[in-house]
Amino acid sequence: MANTDKNSYTVIFATVMVIVVGSLLAFTAASLKPNIKENERMEKQQNILYAMGINENEEGSINFISEDKVAEVFSTGVTEQIVLEYKDGAIVKEMSRDEFMKANSIEPYLIDVKKQQTRAKEGKSRFLPLFKGMQDNKIVYVAPIRGVGLWDAIWGYVALDKDMVVRGAYFDHKGETPGLGANIKQRYFMDDFYGEKLLTDAGVFKGITVAKGNNDPTNEIKDDYEVDALTGATITGDGVSAMIKKDLKLYLPYFQNLKNKS
């Protein structure tokens, strides 16, 4: 038996361990990557469709369009994908899906919001994807948002009509506390957003606040710019308010344009 206290043995053991574990992890990551990518792609399609109101919901539960149908439904449900290039408070360029894919060879719905936020911080322009679809014979626009909750990242998709009134929302999180912050993923929380306005009557962006001690717990008043908070999840709720205010505000010039045109 080798003397396991010797320094040379320790060094050799550590080296072997690093190589074995490293290659094992790299091998799993590499060989499973296509499957994982495919799953993530389907999830994004399901989320976007969910925000538009296309889902297989039963009472109280959340059911996405099933995996075998999602690609087909996505191609018909999302009528148009556009990408806006945003810099210093203004939209400098509007691209169709084909134009964007020619330049970046990636589908607009696969744009990584986090990467774009980092780009914006570095002072570069960022891409804002927007997905158009139909709901009750009206066009809705779905925008992705992303922020930070109590423990880690939270994100979501919000469907808006041309006046920036919410027509559906989907939120998800990486690791919020189960039973507390994780409840942003519950149907009763997401459904509260339906019908809430983002703009004041004068057209100023106000956003939606997840408010504690709200006078309207069943959320019948739709023009108070508030939804009822979740018990024991103050910081997650603040994160949701913040990402709505910050990320959806970027789309304001686009919707103003839309209004001026019509």
Binding site: T4, M17, T28, A29, L32
Partner: peptide, 28 residues
């Protein structure tokens, strides 16, 4: 075979890689 000086690192790496591999397999 674990050298006592670095046993904590070895233990943590064993757990962490077990969990990460299972996580990746489930994700796929």
């Amino acid at each position: 075979v674990i050298p006592s000086k670095i046993r904590i690192i070895v233990q943590l790496i064993v757990v962490a890689s077990l969990v990460i591999i299972v996580d990746q397999v489930l994700k796929a």
